[in-house]
Design a protein around this nucleic acid. Structure first.
Length: 828
DNA sequence: CTGTAATA
């Protein structure tokens, strides 16, 4: 029998106890750390006190709470109890209530009084008082003051339950209700009755539909301004999140809002009412408007912020410490010698350009050596500035490392760190995000003089703004990326817009180094980039093939392919299956499971396993770390291998343990930490961007359709160095290829950088010198930006939103649509 | 539906 350590056999753990001291409490997100004196528990835990961690409001000393949750071990602070739910324990015995009422919580109430109350009202005393404040009148010899004390204290302390009951009544489940309570606390009922639509903005997980239901219950119906405004925000947010738009045209917003409102409640809404609401929102700064474009404020100010910072940097160009061509060439020569590499002419140009610009873009397709240039740039920069590249030296002197490397995903950051042998991190970590604060709140300045951002195509408008905002005055920034690869998950297309503006010095690498000469993968990639399906797609070539398979077959076909690749002598580490999404029968989770069964099976059930949710871990499994854990020196993106599974009875803590080795750094996970890792046989295409693999296997099935796009296919395919195996349905592949969101993302960043139609910058043709590469072609380097152009940047006065009551016609539904009736917008 | 982030 398998030595399964099943999660589901574990009983729900609880602690009944009183807080002794609050160690930490974050008022904005309720994250709390409290030392609790245990009164009762079903934990295997012998101490009298325990550290309790979780999201809950300030607790009262001396009151009894019931926590449920799990035990976990913090790498630095040891064993703790992670709270999932908590409730105040209302005393259920006469003695308990007497003790409770006579405690310090109720000043002026002594034991005698408490006894009398219980005598008169019974064990239900507290419930009775909460339900009916008059109940205390039945108690003799209790003056008004004392009655008030009791009522108020109970109200304050048990108010949570009351609010929860109301929220449940309004249709919110316990989890969501807690989240809502954490947001509004005592004010919950009051604020929601006033405007239920605030939930959409304030509480994640509540959408327009949910809020509108509550609105209807509270009598906010039809053309109520709050209702219309909520719908407008919803339409803009939805466009930003699902389609990547930074703004929408008013003429598009109006019919959209109308339809939405009329679908939710069957009452006709006039366009005039929507126009009026939009103007008001503009005045209240709930949205921003420019000509007929409507923006969410965060996106509007982000875009302006990006443009302004970029132009500042361009203006700053002259003040940078410059190097002559000779100095740079000499330094490059030295670096080439030391690293035993030889840079192509374009690569040298790129390094030169980066050294002498405040901001520049390094672009080029997959495998063109962008990473090589980053490595070289860092070395040459250090050489020229006489800097050490040993991070330890800076740590000793407590000085910031002068070169900052960052990328938008953990895996890409890891890859960057590996290829440069320097510290690299996610942009989020660089900026000190903690996952809680509202945008605009981080004010960290990035210390470092050379900032290199890799995989810039995946950086959205919000993040780009935060990043640029945090750069120092004299920073030099290099954006590295490929606009044909994945766009951001969030709104905008910053890299694409920056390139399209032609305002920023740019070097494009063209020669392909990753794949071998004559690779048909490259040929396929070129076709895909253009949107063509080569007629050779179904043909098997030396380095790629397309195996037709129906959706239900695909998972088993993928595993068969993995199996035969291994049979041909490839290592599982060199084989990577890539898929767009996690869920579903051909999703990443399922594929991981199937591949694991094949390459690391437990057929006879004799091996040790650790079961966590749907995942089984065995020794030898390839895993991926998903969150940062500086305490253990592991970070999002690290890949490791399971080296040990230790069962609860074999450990001191009586906990199941899983040990993963990250290049020799062994990290121990408890059950509660296992959500930090995942199997890594198959990973998302998003995470794979930046990496390369000997063999890539890509399933393509209809269930992926929502996500399939040309740049996703392109990114996945170009990860393959030697072999590419596509499996699935050719027509689905064709459908994905036809979908581009290039021109569909509405943004105005390019326009902000190009306020006037400027003539195209001179393009300097550079002859590539890498004759050894067959597929060479010319490379382009656009000239430096003239200062004059940068000065055309529109400051506030030009960009001042023009939407107000006087310019209302701008957002009239019929703008630009003469002869069209509003009813033409109504579908069906 | 893809990505990121943590407090003593």
């Amino acid at each position: 029998m398998a030595e399964n350590l099943d999660l589901f056999e574990v009983n729900k753990l609880f602690i009944l106890g009183r807080p002794i001291v609050s160690i930490f409490h974050n008022d904005s997100n309720m994250y709390s750390i409290v030392r609790v004196k245990i009164q009762e528990t079903n934990l295997q835990y012998n101490e009298k006190e325990i550290i309790v961690v979780g999201y809950f409001p300030k607790l009262n000393d001396d009151e009894l709470y019931r926590f449920t949750g799990t035990m976990k071990s913090h790498p630095k602070y040891g064993l703790q109890f992670q709270v999932e739910t908590f409730v105040k324990e209302v005393p259920a015995t006469e003695q308990g209530i007497i003790h409770y009422l006579s405690s310090d919580l109720f000043p002026g109430i002594g034991r005698k009084t408490a006894e009398i109350i219980v005598e008169k009202l019974g064990v239900d005393a507290i419930k009775k008082i909460m339900e009916d404040p008059e109940a205390l009148d039945a108690v003799p010899r209790l003056n008004e003051e004392k009655k008030m004390t009791i009522k108020q204290t109970l109200e304050q302390n048990l108010g949570l339950e009351k609010i929860m009951i109301q929220l449940n009544d309004w249709g919110f489940g316990p989890q969501l209700a807690m989240k809502i309570y954490q947001t509004y606390r005592e004010e919950t009922i009051h604020l929601l009755t006033e405007n239920p639509y605030r939930l959409i903005e304030d509480v994640e997980g509540v959408g327009f539909g949910r809020a509108d239901e509550l609105g209807a219950r509270l009598g906010i119906v039809g053309a109520h301004p709050d209702r219309i405004k909520a719908a407008v925000l919803h339409v803009l947010t939805d466009a930003a999140l699902s389609e990547g738009h930074v703004f929408l045209d008013a003429e598009h917003v109006l019919p959209h809002v109308k339809t939405m409102l009329e679908q939710s409640q069957r009452e006709e809404i006039q366009y005039e009412a929507i126009s009026k609401a939009i103007i008001e929102m503009r005045e209240e700064s709930k949205i921003c408007g420019e000509e007929t474009r409507l923006y969410l404020p965060s996106l509007y100010y982000s875009e302006i912020g990006i443009a302004s910072k970029i132009l500042d940097l361009l203006n700053h160009n002259d003040k940078q410490e410059r190097f002559t061509k000779d100095e740079i060439r000499k330094a490059i020569g030295e670096v080439e010698e030391r690293l035993e590499v030889s840079y192509a002419e374009t690569q040298v140009k790129a390094i030169e350009c980066a050294l002498n610009s405040s901001v520049m873009i390094l672009t080029g397709g997959p495998g063109t050596g962008k990473t090589t240039v980053i490595r070289g740039l860092v070395e040459v920069y250090a050489e020229l500035h006489g800097l050490s590249l040993n991070p330890k030296e800076y740590a000793q002197k407590e000085e910031p490392f002068p070169i900052v490397l960052a990328a938008p995903t953990g895996r890409a950051a890891k890859r960057l760190a590996e290829s440069t042998e320097l510290p690299a991190m996610t942009i989020h970590r660089l900026l000190g995000f903690n996952g809680q604060e509202k945008e605009e709140e981080t004010e960290r300045e990035v210390e470092g003089r050379l900032i290199i951002i890799d995989e810039m195509s995946m950086v959205d408008t919000w993040l780009a703004h935060q990043l640029l905002k945090s750069l120092g005055e004299d920073a030099q920034v290099v954006f590295v990326g490929d606009q044909d690869q994945l766009p951001p998950v969030g709104p905008g297309q910053v890299l694409k817009d920056l390139l399209a503006s032609k305002q920023i010095p740019t070097v494009e690498l063209i020669d392909v180094y990753r794949q071998a000469e004559g690779s048909t993968i490259i040929e396929l990639a070129h076709q895909i980039k253009k949107g063509n399906i080569p007629n050779t797609i179904a043909e098997k070539t030396t380095d790629r093939s397309f195996i037709k398979a129906s959706a239900p077959q695909v998972a088993s076909v993928v595993t068969q392919v993995v199996k035969s690749a291994i049979a041909k002598g490839q290592s599982i580490r060199d084989i990577q299956v890539l898929a767009p999404m996690y869920k579903g029968p051909a999703g990443i989770d399922m594929l991981n499971k199937q591949i694991q069964e094949l390459v690391n099976p437990n057929a006879d059930g004799s091996r040790k396993e650790l079961v966590f949710g749907d995942v089984v871990y065995r020794i030898g499994d390839k895993v991926l770390q998903l969150v940062n854990q500086p305490e253990s020196n592991i970070f999002n993106g690290d890949m490791g291998e399971v080296v040990a599974i230790i069962r609860a009875k074999e450990t001191v803590e009586k906990q199941d343990l899983l040990v993963v080795s990250y290049d020799g750094n062994e990290v121990t996970y408890q059950r509660g930490d296992l959500n930090q890792i995942t199997l890594a046989y198959c990973c998302s295409i998003h995470k794979s961007q930046g990496s390369e693999f000997q063999t890539v296997i890509m399933p393509i099935v209809r269930s992926y359709s929502k996500m399939l796009r040309r740049n996703l296919l392109y990114t996945g395919i170009t990860r393959a160095k030697n072999f590419l195996i596509l499996c699935g349905e050719p027509d689905v592949f064709a459908g994905g290829l036809a979908k581009t969101d290039d021109l569909q993302r509405l943004t105005s960043l390019k326009a902000r950088l190009n306020p006037m139609e400027v003539e195209d910058l001179e393009i300097v043709e550079v002859q590539s010198d890498s004759l050894k590469h067959e597929n060479q072609s010319e490379s382009k380097i656009s000239g430096e930006v003239k200062e004059q152009q940068a000065m055309f940047y529109m400051k506030g006065e030009v960009l001042e939103p023009v939407l107000n009551a006087e310019t209302a016609p701008y957002i009239h539904p019929l703008i630009g649509m003469e002869g069209v009736s509003p009813y033409d917008f109504q579908e069906d």
